[in-house]
Write a protein that binds this DNA or RNA. Structure first.
Length: 407
DNA sequence: CAGAAACGGTTATGCGAC
DNA sequence: TGAAGTCGCATAACCGTT
C-alpha cells in the first residue's frame, strides 16, 4: 500500500453523521489470500502469497503477515521471496475465487438491487432505497460486514460516503477489517491532507507530473486554477481529478455490466522464436477467447493481437471485420494474419495476447448489412423486425424515412 | 468543381485499476 | 530489478465521407 497512512485519531474524529451517505463500497480483505487460508487453516497466521509459481510470476495477493515484509500485489515473485523466503506460495485458483465472489454477490443483493461489481472482491451499493427498511447507512454497513463474516468466514472492509469516489477511499483507509464513514460535511477535511496518488485515476505517470509541479497533496491541487491543471496533466484528466479534489463525483452505481471486450494473454516461461510455435500459441488463445464468447452468447467485430518482446516493448495490432463472429477458425485466421503482417524475424517474444472487441449479443450481431454486402443479412433483419413487432406492436419499428414529426 | 471542415470509424498506444 | 492477466477509458493519427 503506497498511499500514505492517515492518522487513526483523525479518522475517529470524523463523526457519525451518515445522513447523506448512501453509497457503500465493499472490499474483501486480502481476498485471494484469505480464501486460500480459509481452505487450508494450517496457513493461518503465516505469510501467504498467491501468485505465479513459475519463474516469471508476480504476486497476485498476500496476507497481512506477508505484507509486513514489504510484499505487495504486482511485485515480482523472485523479489517477494527474497524479502520473505519462508513465505508459503500458493497458485491462484480463479474458479474458487469466482465461486466465493458469487456467494458474496448474493449477500449484497439481499441489501439492495443496486449493486455494481468492480472486481471479484469489490462492489458499490446504492442504499438510498434501503434505508427505510434496513436502517441508517452505518447500521446497514455494520450488519453487512457481520453477515459476510458469518456466512463466508471472510472479512470485508466497508466505506460509507455520499459518492463512489469517497466511499472507495473510505474502505481503503478502513482496511483491514474496518468500517469508515466520511460524513458529507467532513469530506474536504478528510480529502485535502491526502497524497495526490489517492485520487482515483492518478497512477504512477500522472503522479510524477503532479509532483514535478510541486503538487503533493490533494489540497494543493484544489487550490489551483483549472487552466494551470490543464497544462500539467491535460484537459481530460484535469477535469476529472479537479472534481474529485472537491469530493465531487456524480457517477451513478450501474448494475448492468455487459462486457466490452474479452481476451486472454500468456507470458511464456521462455521466450518464443519460431513462427510455428507462435502460431500454435495464437490458436490456443483464440480457442479460449472464442469459447468464452460463445459461452456468453457474444460475437465480436474487432480482433486484437498483442505481442510483448523480450525487452518488454509491447505492440498491438487489430482488425475490424464487416460482420460479427465467435468462430474459432475465423478469429484464428485474422489473428494469425495480424501476426504474419508483422514480418518478425526470430524476435524474442515473451507474451502473446488475443482480445475480442466491439461485442454484440450473437442473436443481434450477425446481420449487419454493410456497404460491402448491401443485401446480406436483410432476411434475418426482417425476421427480427417481425419478432419485435409481435411484441411491441406494428408501430414500434419502421424505416427511418417513414418517421414523421408526431412520432 | 475543388477544397475546407466536420464527422465517424478504425487503428495504435498509453494509462490506470484490481 | 524484473515486471501477470484482464479490462475500461482516453487520446491521437489517419482515413474516407459528406
Amino acid at each position: 500500500m503506497s498511499k500514505a497512512q492517515l492518522n487513526r485519531t483523525k479518522i475517529a474524529s470524523l463523526g457519525s453523521d451518515d445522513s447523506q451517505c448512501h453509497i457503500l463500497h465493499i472490499d474483501m480483505d486480502a481476498f485471494y489470500a484469505s480464501v486460500e487460508v480459509r481452505a487450508n487453516p494450517s496457513l493461518a497466521g503465516k505469510p501467504v502469497i498467491v501468485g505465479g509459481t513459475q519463474g516469471r510470476g508476480v504476486v497476485v495477493a498476500a496476507t497481512y503477515e506477508a505484507r509486513a515484509f514489504g510484499i505487495h500485489a504486482a511485485m515480482p515473485m523472485s523479489r517477494a521471496l527474497r524479502l520473505c523466503p519462508q513465505a508459503v506460495v500458493v497458485a491462484a485458483d480463479h474458479a474458487q475465487y469466482a465461486e466465493v465472489s458469487r456467494q458474496l454477490y448474493q449477500i449484497l443483493i439481499s441489501i439492495t438491487p443496486y449493486v455494481e461489481t468492480l472486481a471479484l472482491d469489490e462492489a458499490f451499493l446504492d442504499i438510498s432505497g434501503s434505508i427505510k427498511l434496513l436502517g441508517r447507512p452505518v447500521e446497514i454497513a455494520t450488519k453487512l460486514r457481520a453477515q459476510i463474516k458469518s456466512q463466508l468466514a471472510l472479512t470485508a472492509s466497508v466505506g460509507v460516503a455520499s459518492n463512489k469516489f469517497l466511499a472507495k477511499l473510505a474502505s481503503t483507509y478502513a482496511k483491514p477489517y474496518g468500517l469508515l464513514l466520511i460524513p458529507e460535511q467532513k469530506k474536504i477535511e478528510f480529502l485535502h491532507p491526502l497524497p495526490v496518488g489517492a485520487l482515483w485515476g492518478v497512477g504512477e505517470k500522472t503522479e510524477i507530473k503532479l509532483k514535478e509541479s510541486g503538487l503533493n497533496l490533494i489540497g494543493d491541487i484544489a487550490k489551483l486554477p483549472i487552466e494551470t491543471l490543464n497544462r500539467i496533466v491535460g484537459e481530460g484528466v484535469a477535469a476529472h481529478i479537479y472534481e474529485l479534489c472537491w469530493g465531487i463525483d456524480d457517477r451513478e452505481v450501474v448494475t448492468t455490466e455487459v462486457e466490452k471486450s474479452i481476451g486472454n494473454e500468456t507470458t511464456f516461461g521462455e521466450d518464443l522464436f519460431e513462427a510455428t510455435e507462435v502460431e500454435a500459441q495464437i490458436l490456443r488463445l483464440v480457442d479460449q477467447v472464442a469459447a468464452r464468447l460463445r459461452n456468453r452468447d457474444l460475437s465480436a467485430k474487432t480482433i486484437c493481437l498483442k505481442i510483448r518482446f523480450h525487452d518488454f516493448t509491447t505492440i498491438t495490432r487489430s482488425k475490424t471485420i464487416s460482420s460479427y463472429t465467435h468462430n474459432t477458425q475465423e478469429i484464428n485466421q485474422i489473428a494469425r494474419q495480424l501476426y504474419r503482417n508483422l514480418n518478425l524475424q526470430r524476435a524474442r517474444i515473451r507474451l502473446i495476447g488475443v482480445r475480442a472487441e466491439s461485442l454484440q449479443p450473437t442473436n443481434q450481431a450477425n446481420f449487419q448489412p454493410t456497404l460491402d454486402q448491401p443485401d446480406l443479412g436483410w432476411p434475418e433483419a426482417e425476421i427480427a423486425v417481425d419478432q419485435a413487432r409481435a411484441k411491441f406492436g406494428v408501430a414500434a419499428i419502421k424505416p427511418a424515412r417513414l418517421i414523421s414529426e408526431q412520432d
